[in-house]
Design a protein around this nucleic acid. Sequence first.
DNA 1: ACCGGTATCGATACCGTTACCGATACCACA
DNA 2: TGTGGTATCGGTAACGGTATCGATACCGGT
Lengths: 327, 327
Amino acid sequence: MTQKATLADVAAVAGVSKMTASRALRGAPEVSQLSRDRVQQAAAQIGYVANPLAASLSSKRTQLVGVVVPSLTNTVFAEMLTGIVETIEGSGLQPVFGVTNYNPDTELDVLRNMLSWRPAGLIVTGLDHPEAAKILLRQSEQTLVQVMDVDGTAIGNCVGISHTQAGAEMARTLLASGARKIGYVNCTQIFDIRATKRLDGFRGALRDAGLEITAIQTSDTPSSAPAGRAQTRQLMQEHPDLDAIYYSNDDLAAGGLFHCLAQGICVPKGVILAGFNGLEFSESLPAQIVTTRTPRREIGQIAAQMVLDGDTDKCVQLMPQIVYLGG
Amino acid sequence: MTQKATLADVAAVAGVSKMTASRALRGAPEVSQLSRDRVQQAAAQIGYVANPLAASLSSKRTQLVGVVVPSLTNTVFAEMLTGIVETIEGSGLQPVFGVTNYNPDTELDVLRNMLSWRPAGLIVTGLDHPEAAKILLRQSEQTLVQVMDVDGTAIGNCVGISHTQAGAEMARTLLASGARKIGYVNCTQIFDIRATKRLDGFRGALRDAGLEITAIQTSDTPSSAPAGRAQTRQLMQEHPDLDAIYYSNDDLAAGGLFHCLAQGICVPKGVILAGFNGLEFSESLPAQIVTTRTPRREIGQIAAQMVLDGDTDKCVQLMPQIVYLGG
DNA sequence: ACCGGTATCGATACCGTTACCGATACCACA
DNA sequence: TGTGGTATCGGTAACGGTATCGATACCGGT
């Protein structure tokens, strides 16, 4: 009881060799029904728990899937993780998470650490990594999936959306609603490359219409609804005549909406607020915002499926959707 | 390049034995400065990456910390995870997450799976587990920390808050504000034992004042702001004269607030809304709600520290705080 | 009765690392 | 010069499994 039961113990109790016990427990075909039953019973009897470390070392294969995300508190990544977890569930694969905090140095560390486990698959966020990380990823042998973003060159498999296109589409949507004086709000405490791509696409589409962003309100606080509220207050104070405000995500946009509600500014009549992600809570907001619904859960599912299938060069571009939430 | 470099390769290049190489890389004291340098240089030169599987198998120790949470999309757990991650960072420990979806059967599976890795530490959510899980936990040898809840009997270490007390305190707060007709809103799609404890405490304190909950609005949808909005609508339709509504969490409460705002109901003048957790976004809501701020990040930090320190029977009860957010 | 084939099993050699203990060298000191 | 102690190293045996291949038994067909 004090010492864990080992395969040898199971084999001894079952009266077979270690190999037969191993095969029986793994469901290998070359075991007689009799031995199989005996082994399973013996294992149950002494409470045997397989040791995946030893198995991995011996077989030179692991059942690990490394998942590297920038943040856990961001619902978007949490939902992607959920997609991954629910897809690999029951496959015998084990997800291992790493968090980079949007920091390239941390990302490199996390990646190195992840790779040291020699995972069967690796799912990393984004296409943009520090050069050293790219080298690591290229050298490594396992199934690689880069998620969330398709704007750039993938090293391995790839699932996501085009943030550049998403930004452009939002610009066109706002323009179509008649907006001409448009503000932009973001947070730069962390360097969010995908938000930057959206901004680029947004700007490009405005320029195609002969327009520029009227004002940009940036802060180096973490992105959150309170930050969105504070920044919107400041932005609208300096530019009371904006037709629309594009936020780098729904949290900021919700904060912006809260500011408007508190000030009695009518949304979207007085000003259109645009976010990104289409988070669930946005659906219940008391006024309507426009946002881009991202299929993050599906991205997680597809990425996990790619790992399961051992794909190597697959690339799936998902199409986000402009939606009007709340009201 | 195709085959990973092993410790033997490092040793060969450095001109020492495997043992010396191993010791040098681990920073063991019984290595001369000369050998140490040579080994480190050799390792860097051939790009050696240590294999934690082999190390763990050989040393019978792992650097793994298993973390079992009910959900990843719930910000509360994500923030606790953040606390854990930031605390064990740099200690050489590796967090491994498991998600139970509030399902006891899943919890047992996840736990079994977690334990099979023989982690150095295990952090699980709550004090209430299926009986089989409790047995597993009691038998296992590693540092165990049960987090979030202190209402009950801990198996190992324990850090959290008393949800019963939190519920009672909220009841007293609402009573002190003059509320007499009080509604309660929750979601039961998942069985949230801690929410139940809060409700018990809440009810108890009301009874102490000779009162009962006026109406309970339950739904079996997942807990979210949209659910909160829908349920509040229904509840207020049937009971338009409520003084206050207690929600099982801030998401629902925010949804409730959105309903009131959309209906032009004044909060908190017309009705007091009470949530739980004190999420960051609640701070920016355009009207004031009352909630219980929970120290979930700190809980994660303390739990991780307990694992690092190898504590066995420590129990830390943190004190939540009633706060007024938004407005 | 002999043969080839299939089903079932076991012995052995690892996987890459660390624990353990013995070996060696070198030093100060008697 | 011998002796004991310390610092540094290496050989060997694990750790708990799996891959591989050879051994055995048993089958049907001729």
